[in-house]
Amino acid sequence: MENSKDIFNEKPKSSFAKAFDVISTMASKPSGFIGLAILVFHIILAITSPWFAPYDYKAINPSLMLNAPSSEFWFGTDSLGRDVFTRTILGGRTALTITFFGSIIALLWGGLLGIFCGLVGGRIDDIVMRIVDAFLSIPWILAMLLIVSLLGTTTEVLIPALGFFYGKGIVRVARAATHDVIAKDFIVSAKARGHSNLSIIWNEILPNVRDAILVEGAMRWSWMLLGFSSLSFLGFGVSPPTPDWGLMISNARGLMSFAWWAVIAPIVGLSSLIIGINLTADAFAKALGIDRSTKAPV
């Protein structure tokens, strides 16, 4: 019988085995499998593409301007005669790196501040949440554009700025998740034992809210990618000639009536990556038993 399993002598699973369990649950549904496959494909592509890119991504060649796709140039050439295939397979590297580190920063500060606010409550919590609300009501694009236009578009500016602006929503999620566990007996007894706030956060709360925060972080990653590409598209992201999908789309857009290939290739690259991360994040949430679909994207 199921119930007669000896739960007291069962060994706790190692974190590696747990991660494997979660991933296999995610891959068991078609949408999760497709998402994971796309994501893994993009990560491998981003890591390995410099070794097999057929041409130089910044080599300008006026005699090859706007060539249609051929056996020589698989995706054609752009308005400066650069190979679109080369630039497309290299185009996700910057976006992936910047948004990956940005999401980690967002997770760290948003998660920790949220847990802290949920734990201490009272006046500090009120003040912090008001400030977070105020930041939420400023459109991210206005704030990001202002920062980037005044401080420059280098990686050192973009990563912390994105990390900051996408972390404020995590504060709310982490705080709500903390409120759910805060009244449980084990927190009360930890307080009674005289543990410090820091130790309670680390040993008691964090293991219980980790799933919710991780799922939120995965979702933020895809939104941040969307935001970063929008910045690039508007000309406030990475600077040319770095190949980047958002920038490539905005450059090729003006000429798309006669050179559609130069705009379609980066569109496919960027869309597939964002869809892949989204499907993965959704499957991740489902595998951990968290329902995100009733949440607004703030």
């Binding site: 590409s229 929008s230 789309i249 798309m256 009536s257 569109i267 869309s271 869809i275 989204n278």
Partner: peptide, 22 residues
């Protein structure tokens, strides 16, 4: 819905222009 929700606005807008207008 998943497609139209995840694809950035500037991509769907560009595609709309390319297909419907051009």
């Amino acid at each position: 819905a998943i497609f139209s929700m995840t694809i950035p606005e500037f991509i769907s807008a560009t595609l709309l222009i390319l297909i419907v207008a051009i």
